[in-house]
Protein backbone atom coordinates (compact mmCIF):
# COMPACT_ATOMS: atom_id res chain seq x y z
CA UNK A 1 0.00 0.00 0.00
CA UNK A 2 1.34 3.49 -0.77
CA UNK A 3 2.21 5.20 2.49
CA UNK A 4 1.39 8.87 2.96
CA UNK A 5 3.57 10.47 5.55
CA UNK A 6 1.30 13.22 6.77
CA UNK A 7 2.95 13.60 10.17
CA UNK A 8 6.50 13.19 8.97
CA UNK A 9 6.19 15.67 6.14
CA UNK A 10 6.53 18.61 8.45
CA UNK A 11 9.82 17.26 9.79
CA UNK A 12 11.62 17.19 6.42
CA UNK A 13 13.64 20.30 7.22
CA UNK A 14 14.65 18.96 10.64
CA UNK A 15 15.77 15.72 9.02
CA UNK A 16 17.96 17.76 6.67
CA UNK A 17 19.40 19.68 9.61
CA UNK A 18 20.60 16.49 11.36
CA UNK A 19 24.32 16.53 10.59
CA UNK A 20 24.59 12.77 11.23
CA UNK A 21 27.52 13.28 13.61
CA UNK A 22 26.41 10.19 15.52
CA UNK A 23 27.04 11.73 18.96
CA UNK A 24 23.59 10.44 19.95
CA UNK A 25 25.06 6.90 20.01
CA UNK A 26 26.58 7.66 23.38
CA UNK A 27 23.23 8.20 25.01
CA UNK A 28 21.14 5.40 23.56
CA UNK A 29 20.27 2.49 25.80
CA UNK A 30 19.15 0.34 22.86
CA UNK A 31 22.40 0.87 20.95
CA UNK A 32 24.48 0.03 24.01
CA UNK A 33 22.63 -3.28 24.15
CA UNK A 34 22.90 -4.31 20.52
CA UNK A 35 25.91 -2.43 19.09
CA UNK A 36 24.09 -2.28 15.72
CA UNK A 37 24.04 1.16 14.11
CA UNK A 38 20.50 0.66 12.81
CA UNK A 39 19.42 0.79 16.48
CA UNK A 40 20.94 4.23 17.10
CA UNK A 41 18.91 7.44 17.02
CA UNK A 42 20.94 8.52 13.99
CA UNK A 43 20.25 5.19 12.27
CA UNK A 44 16.53 5.61 12.87
CA UNK A 45 16.56 9.16 11.52
CA UNK A 46 18.39 7.90 8.42
CA UNK A 47 15.64 5.30 7.93
CA UNK A 48 12.85 7.81 8.48
CA UNK A 49 14.48 10.23 6.05
CA UNK A 50 14.72 7.42 3.50
CA UNK A 51 11.03 6.54 4.00
CA UNK A 52 9.93 10.12 3.57
CA UNK A 53 11.91 10.53 0.37
CA UNK A 54 10.94 7.22 -1.17
CA UNK A 55 14.40 5.63 -0.89
CA UNK A 56 13.06 2.79 1.28
CA UNK A 57 9.67 1.09 1.29
CA UNK A 58 7.89 1.12 4.65
CA UNK A 59 7.90 -2.26 6.38
CA UNK A 60 7.09 -3.87 9.72
CA UNK A 61 10.84 -4.14 10.29
CA UNK A 62 11.28 -0.39 10.02
CA UNK A 63 8.20 0.12 12.24
CA UNK A 64 9.85 -2.16 14.81
CA UNK A 65 12.95 0.09 14.83
CA UNK A 66 10.82 3.19 15.33
CA UNK A 67 9.03 1.58 18.28
CA UNK A 68 12.38 0.64 19.84
CA UNK A 69 12.74 3.85 21.84
CA UNK A 70 12.29 4.56 25.56
CA UNK A 71 11.89 8.30 25.06
CA UNK A 72 14.58 9.09 27.59
CA UNK A 73 15.19 11.95 25.13
CA UNK A 74 18.89 12.01 25.84
CA UNK A 75 19.48 11.99 22.07
CA UNK A 76 17.28 15.07 21.59
CA UNK A 77 18.66 16.88 24.62
CA UNK A 78 22.26 16.28 23.60
CA UNK A 79 21.86 16.63 19.84
CA UNK A 80 24.65 18.68 18.24
CA UNK A 81 22.12 20.24 15.88
CA UNK A 82 19.24 20.43 18.38
CA UNK A 83 17.05 18.13 16.32
CA UNK A 84 13.84 16.99 18.06
CA UNK A 85 14.75 13.35 17.54
CA UNK A 86 12.02 11.70 19.60
CA UNK A 87 9.27 13.98 18.22
CA UNK A 88 10.28 12.74 14.78
CA UNK A 89 10.03 9.15 16.04
CA UNK A 90 6.50 9.88 17.26
CA UNK A 91 5.49 11.27 13.86
CA UNK A 92 6.96 8.18 12.19
CA UNK A 93 5.05 5.94 14.62
CA UNK A 94 1.80 7.70 13.75
CA UNK A 95 2.37 7.49 10.00
CA UNK A 96 3.43 3.86 10.04
CA UNK A 97 0.51 2.78 12.24
CA UNK A 98 -1.94 4.73 10.08
CA UNK A 99 -0.47 3.05 6.99
CA UNK A 100 -1.19 -0.32 8.55
CA UNK A 101 2.25 -1.39 9.73
CA UNK A 102 2.57 -3.03 13.08
CA UNK A 103 5.27 -3.40 15.70
CA UNK A 104 5.62 -3.44 19.48
CA UNK A 105 9.23 -2.48 20.04
CA UNK A 106 9.71 -1.62 23.72
CA UNK A 107 6.06 -0.75 24.40
CA UNK A 108 4.06 -2.58 27.08
CA UNK A 109 1.49 -5.18 26.00
CA UNK A 110 -1.55 -6.39 27.92
CA UNK A 111 -2.72 -9.98 27.84
CA UNK A 112 -6.45 -9.19 27.80
CA UNK A 113 -7.57 -12.76 28.60
CA UNK A 114 -5.93 -12.68 32.01
CA UNK A 115 -6.53 -9.00 32.87
CA UNK A 116 -8.49 -8.65 36.15
CA UNK A 117 -9.67 -5.15 35.14
CA UNK A 118 -8.35 -3.62 38.38
CA UNK A 119 -7.15 -0.63 36.32
CA UNK A 120 -4.20 0.13 38.59
CA UNK A 121 -2.05 0.38 35.47
CA UNK A 122 -4.12 3.28 34.15
CA UNK A 123 -3.49 5.29 37.28
CA UNK A 124 0.31 4.93 37.09
CA UNK A 125 0.66 5.80 33.40
CA UNK A 126 1.76 9.42 33.10
CA UNK A 127 1.71 9.44 29.29
CA UNK A 128 -1.95 8.32 29.23
CA UNK A 129 -1.13 5.41 26.99
CA UNK A 130 -3.57 3.24 28.96
CA UNK A 131 -7.27 3.94 29.22
CA UNK A 132 -10.53 2.22 30.12
CA UNK A 133 -12.77 1.20 27.24
CA UNK A 134 -16.15 1.33 29.04
CA UNK A 135 -18.05 -0.20 26.16
CA UNK A 136 -15.93 -3.30 25.85
CA UNK A 137 -14.95 -3.28 29.52
CA UNK A 138 -11.24 -3.59 29.00
CA UNK A 139 -8.00 -1.66 29.36
CA UNK A 140 -6.75 -0.43 26.02
CA UNK A 141 -3.29 0.66 25.08
CA UNK A 142 -2.29 3.48 22.74
CA UNK A 143 1.06 2.19 21.59
CA UNK A 144 2.03 5.52 20.05
CA UNK A 145 1.80 7.16 23.47
CA UNK A 146 3.54 4.33 25.34
CA UNK A 147 7.16 5.19 26.08
CA UNK A 148 8.11 1.83 27.55
CA UNK A 149 8.97 3.06 31.07
CA UNK A 150 7.64 -0.21 32.45
CA UNK A 151 5.97 1.28 35.54
CA UNK A 152 2.72 -0.49 34.60
CA UNK A 153 4.65 -3.77 34.16
CA UNK A 154 5.95 -3.49 37.71
CA UNK A 155 2.52 -2.43 39.00
CA UNK A 156 0.21 -5.04 37.47
CA UNK A 157 -0.78 -7.42 40.30
CA UNK A 158 -1.56 -10.17 37.80
CA UNK A 159 1.77 -9.81 36.06
CA UNK A 160 0.13 -9.82 32.65
CA UNK A 161 1.55 -6.58 31.31
CA UNK A 162 4.80 -7.41 29.55
CA UNK A 163 7.52 -5.90 27.43
CA UNK A 164 9.22 -7.86 24.67
CA UNK A 165 12.56 -9.45 25.42
CA UNK A 166 15.67 -8.12 23.73
CA UNK A 167 15.76 -4.69 25.38
CA UNK A 168 17.02 -5.82 28.79
CA UNK A 169 13.94 -4.55 30.63
CA UNK A 170 11.61 -7.56 30.61
CA UNK A 171 11.03 -9.19 34.00
CA UNK A 172 13.00 -12.27 32.96
CA UNK A 173 15.95 -10.29 31.61
CA UNK A 174 16.22 -8.02 34.63
CA UNK A 175 16.17 -11.04 36.95
CA UNK A 176 18.85 -12.77 34.90
CA UNK A 177 21.04 -9.70 35.00
CA UNK A 178 20.74 -9.48 38.78
CA UNK A 179 21.64 -13.16 39.02
CA UNK A 180 24.81 -12.70 36.97
CA UNK A 181 26.28 -9.87 39.06
CA UNK A 182 29.67 -10.63 40.56
CA UNK A 183 30.50 -7.28 42.14
CA UNK A 184 29.66 -6.30 45.70
CA UNK A 185 27.25 -3.49 44.91
CA UNK A 186 24.36 -3.01 42.52
CA UNK A 187 23.06 0.30 41.22
CA UNK A 188 19.72 0.53 39.41
CA UNK A 189 20.01 3.61 37.31
CA UNK A 190 17.63 5.48 35.02
CA UNK A 191 18.85 6.42 31.58
CA UNK A 192 17.48 9.92 32.12
CA UNK A 193 20.65 11.96 31.77
CA UNK A 194 22.45 10.58 34.75
CA UNK A 195 24.21 7.57 33.29
CA UNK A 196 26.66 8.92 30.72
CA UNK A 197 29.15 7.33 28.37
CA UNK A 198 29.10 4.70 25.70
CA UNK A 199 30.88 2.00 27.72
CA UNK A 200 30.84 -0.52 24.93
CA UNK A 201 34.49 -1.48 25.09
CA UNK A 202 35.54 -4.46 27.16
CA UNK A 203 38.61 -4.48 29.32
CA UNK A 204 40.21 -7.34 31.16
CA UNK A 205 43.17 -5.39 32.46
CA UNK A 206 41.37 -2.30 33.75
CA UNK A 207 40.59 -2.39 37.47
CA UNK A 208 37.15 -3.94 38.01
CA UNK A 209 34.44 -1.73 39.45
CA UNK A 210 33.14 -2.34 42.95
CA UNK A 211 29.64 -1.98 41.57
CA UNK A 212 27.49 -3.05 38.64
CA UNK A 213 25.08 -0.63 37.03
CA UNK A 214 21.80 -1.90 35.62
CA UNK A 215 20.15 0.73 33.45
CA UNK A 216 16.41 0.19 33.94
CA UNK A 217 15.04 3.25 32.11
CA UNK A 218 12.78 4.30 35.02
CA UNK A 219 12.98 3.56 38.74
CA UNK A 220 9.26 2.74 38.56
CA UNK A 221 10.36 -0.41 36.75
CA UNK A 222 12.42 -1.69 39.70
CA UNK A 223 10.32 -4.38 41.32
CA UNK A 224 10.88 -5.32 44.99
CA UNK A 225 11.61 -8.88 43.88
CA UNK A 226 14.70 -7.67 42.03
CA UNK A 227 16.06 -5.96 45.14
CA UNK A 228 15.37 -9.02 47.29
CA UNK A 229 16.96 -11.23 44.66
CA UNK A 230 20.11 -9.09 44.86
CA UNK A 231 20.30 -9.41 48.68
CA UNK A 232 19.55 -13.09 48.37
CA UNK A 233 22.61 -13.36 46.10
CA UNK A 234 24.75 -11.87 48.87
CA UNK A 235 25.20 -8.43 47.31
CA UNK A 236 26.36 -5.92 49.96
CA UNK A 237 24.30 -2.95 48.90
CA UNK A 238 21.62 -1.90 46.42
CA UNK A 239 21.27 1.69 45.35
CA UNK A 240 18.46 3.15 43.25
CA UNK A 241 19.57 6.26 41.37
CA UNK A 242 16.67 8.18 39.91
CA UNK A 243 15.30 11.60 39.06
CA UNK A 244 14.29 14.01 41.88
CA UNK A 245 10.64 13.69 43.02
CA UNK A 246 9.02 16.21 40.69
CA UNK A 247 11.24 15.60 37.71
CA UNK A 248 10.48 12.01 36.74
CA UNK A 249 9.05 11.82 33.24
CA UNK A 250 6.77 8.99 34.34
CA UNK A 251 6.15 9.61 38.06
CA UNK A 252 7.72 6.18 38.42
CA UNK A 253 9.89 7.41 41.28
CA UNK A 254 6.83 7.99 43.51
CA UNK A 255 5.87 4.39 42.93
CA UNK A 256 9.42 3.32 43.73
CA UNK A 257 9.56 5.44 46.91
CA UNK A 258 6.51 3.70 48.30
CA UNK A 259 7.99 0.32 47.50
CA UNK A 260 11.30 1.19 49.15
CA UNK A 261 9.60 2.48 52.31
CA UNK A 262 7.77 -0.82 52.56
CA UNK A 263 10.92 -2.84 51.87
CA UNK A 264 12.95 -0.91 54.44
CA UNK A 265 10.49 -2.05 57.10
CA UNK A 266 10.64 -5.59 55.87
CA UNK A 267 14.40 -6.01 55.47
CA UNK A 268 15.34 -6.15 59.21
CA UNK A 269 12.85 -8.99 59.64
CA UNK A 270 14.84 -10.87 57.02
CA UNK A 271 18.07 -10.13 58.89
CA UNK A 272 19.18 -7.48 56.38
CA UNK A 273 20.35 -4.07 57.59
CA UNK A 274 17.96 -1.55 55.94
CA UNK A 275 20.90 0.82 55.32
CA UNK A 276 22.04 -1.59 52.63
CA UNK A 277 19.22 -0.22 50.45
CA UNK A 278 19.59 3.42 49.45
CA UNK A 279 17.72 5.77 47.14
CA UNK A 280 19.40 8.88 45.76
CA UNK A 281 18.19 11.58 43.41
CA UNK A 282 20.04 13.17 40.54
CA UNK A 283 19.12 16.04 38.31
CA UNK A 284 19.88 16.16 34.61
CA UNK A 285 23.60 15.98 33.79
CA UNK A 286 24.68 15.07 37.31
CA UNK A 287 26.84 12.15 36.22
CA UNK A 288 29.72 13.30 38.43
CA UNK A 289 27.45 13.54 41.47
CA UNK A 290 26.17 10.04 40.72
CA UNK A 291 29.70 8.65 40.68
CA UNK A 292 30.52 10.34 43.98
CA UNK A 293 27.26 9.10 45.52
CA UNK A 294 28.05 5.52 44.49
CA UNK A 295 31.55 5.79 45.99
CA UNK A 296 30.07 7.16 49.23
CA UNK A 297 27.50 4.36 49.39
CA UNK A 298 30.25 1.75 48.87
CA UNK A 299 32.33 3.42 51.59
CA UNK A 300 29.43 3.67 54.08
CA UNK A 301 28.32 0.07 53.70
CA UNK A 302 31.92 -1.21 53.82
CA UNK A 303 32.34 0.68 57.14
CA UNK A 304 29.19 -0.95 58.54
CA UNK A 305 30.56 -4.35 57.53
CA UNK A 306 33.91 -3.67 59.15
CA UNK A 307 32.42 -2.48 62.42
CA UNK A 308 30.18 -5.56 62.45
CA UNK A 309 33.39 -7.53 62.22
Amino acid sequence: MPAIFNHLKEWQNELNICIRCGYCYEHCHIYKLTNWESDTPRGKLVLIHALLNGELEPSNEIAEKVFECFYCKKCSDNCSAKVSVTDIFTAARQDLVEAGFDADGVTARIDEDFCSRCRLCISVCKTEALSWDAENKKVVRDKIKCQGCGTCVATCPSGIIVQNEGYAVSRKELKERVKKINSRFLVFCCNWEIYPGLRLSRSETAQPDTHTVIVNMCSGRVEPELILEAFNRGIDGVMIACCPPDECEHNGNYKMMRRVAFLKNLLPELGIDAQRLRVDYFKAKEGVKLKKAIDKFVEDISAIHQSAG
Binding site: R20, E37, S38, A50
Partner: peptide, 16 residues
Protein backbone atom coordinates in the same frame (compact mmCIF):
# COMPACT_ATOMS: atom_id res chain seq x y z
CA UNK B 1 25.48 -10.98 9.17
CA UNK B 2 22.70 -8.63 8.10
CA UNK B 3 21.11 -8.10 4.72
CA UNK B 4 17.81 -6.44 5.62
CA UNK B 5 17.35 -3.39 3.34
CA UNK B 6 17.13 -1.17 6.40
CA UNK B 7 20.52 -2.28 7.74
CA UNK B 8 22.10 -2.02 4.30
CA UNK B 9 20.81 1.53 4.02
CA UNK B 10 22.00 2.67 7.45
CA UNK B 11 25.47 1.14 6.95
CA UNK B 12 25.73 3.02 3.66
CA UNK B 13 25.71 6.41 5.40
CA UNK B 14 28.08 8.35 7.65
CA UNK B 15 28.47 12.00 8.69
CA UNK B 16 29.13 13.11 5.10
Amino acid sequence: VRTDPLDLFVYGTDAS
